[in-house]
């Protein structure tokens, strides 16, 4: 446990040295947020209510989405693990007395914690200020949102862990990652809130893990009836279920991959 905490804080410190890159990231996320929000404002100008969303909801979701980019790493970067599998350095990782999944989770949480504080928070604040949005008042919405961010980060990690360890079986994970980033942004409600999708499609996408990254956290913050089970608790349960499932699959595949490495010598 102490080792994992050390890894976590090491990553936190490592990312805190990238000051300029972080500032550039906040700028870029804010610019994209403003552009997406203005498009949606024009849409809601023509049709004031769509599937329970009004203009403010759509803009708030846009900035939740921009704020989530950092912690859930929806556009990447891939876990360093992917590179270590490709180069064979993974053999060293497997020798550690810590389960590789926990090791990389501690890593990723360090990165996520840094980007939450220095990337998500400023971007979200920019959105609230530029569009003069009243932030939700109810404390349970904020408490739910905080839990939702943590669970979204776990889901994001779980997905990226699976993408990375596909490298044990595939020659090159670039294709996997490229496809995943694409699918992730579209199916998570990042490009466009899922409420604007055709109903049948939205229903399918709401079953996939990607919705746990953006759509569900945004709806938890706004306490929307479209949440699974119609409540904040339902939304959190959905996220938690996916996080647990992805991490379970990850553990299972890690065991298989380890046997493969041990048997074949890498």
């Amino acid at each position: 446990m102490r080792v994992l905490f050390a890894v976590f804080s090491y990553e936190l410190r490592r990312f805190s040295t990238y000051r300029v890159a972080t500032a550039a990231g906040v700028f870029t996320n804010s610019v994209f947020g403003v552009i997406n929000a203005m498009v949606l404002l024009a849409v809601f100008d023509a049709k004031p209510e769509i599937n329970g969303y009004v203009a403010e909801d759509a803009v708030l979701q846009v900035f939740v989405a921009q704020a989530m980019i950092g912690p859930v790493a929806i556009f990447g970067p891939p876990l360093d693990l992917a590179d270590r599998i490709r180069t064979g350095e993974i053999a060293v990782d497997l020798l550690r007395p810590v389960h590789p999944l926990l090791w990389w989770l501690a890593h990723d949480l360090g990165r996520a914690a840094f980007s939450l504080a220095f990337r998500s928070a400023p971007t979200f604040t920019v959105g609230l200020l530029v569009f003069a949005l009243p932030p939700p008042a109810a404390p349970e919405q904020w408490a739910g949102f905080a839990a939702a961010i943590l669970l979204a980060t776990l889901v994001g990690f779980g997905l990226r862990y699976l993408y990375a360890i596909s490298g044990f079986w595939l020659m090159d994970t670039r294709g996997v990652h490229a496809t995943a980033w694409l699918l992730g942004t579209f199916a998570s409600g990042m490009v466009l809130p899922l409420v604007l999708f055709p109903d049948a499609m939205a229903q399918v996408l709401r079953l996939l893990p990607f919705a746990a990254l953006v759509q569900v956290p945004a709806e938890i913050l706004m306490d929307k009836a479209t949440l699974p089970g119609g409540t904040i608790a339902g939304g959190l349960a959905y996220q938690a279920a996916w996080a647990a499932a992805l991490i379970a699959i990850g553990t299972l595949l890690t065991a298989r991959a380890t046997r493969k490495v041990v048997v074949q010598g890498g």
């Binding site: 849409v43 579209f186 466009l192």
Partner: peptide, 17 residues
């Protein structure tokens, strides 16, 4: 996919500006 999003948007609002 961006193009798809454009269609979804125009499915709701038939005209923008």
């Amino acid at each position: 996919l961006e193009l798809t999003a454009l269609f979804f948007v125009f499915g709701h609002a038939h005209q923008l500006a």
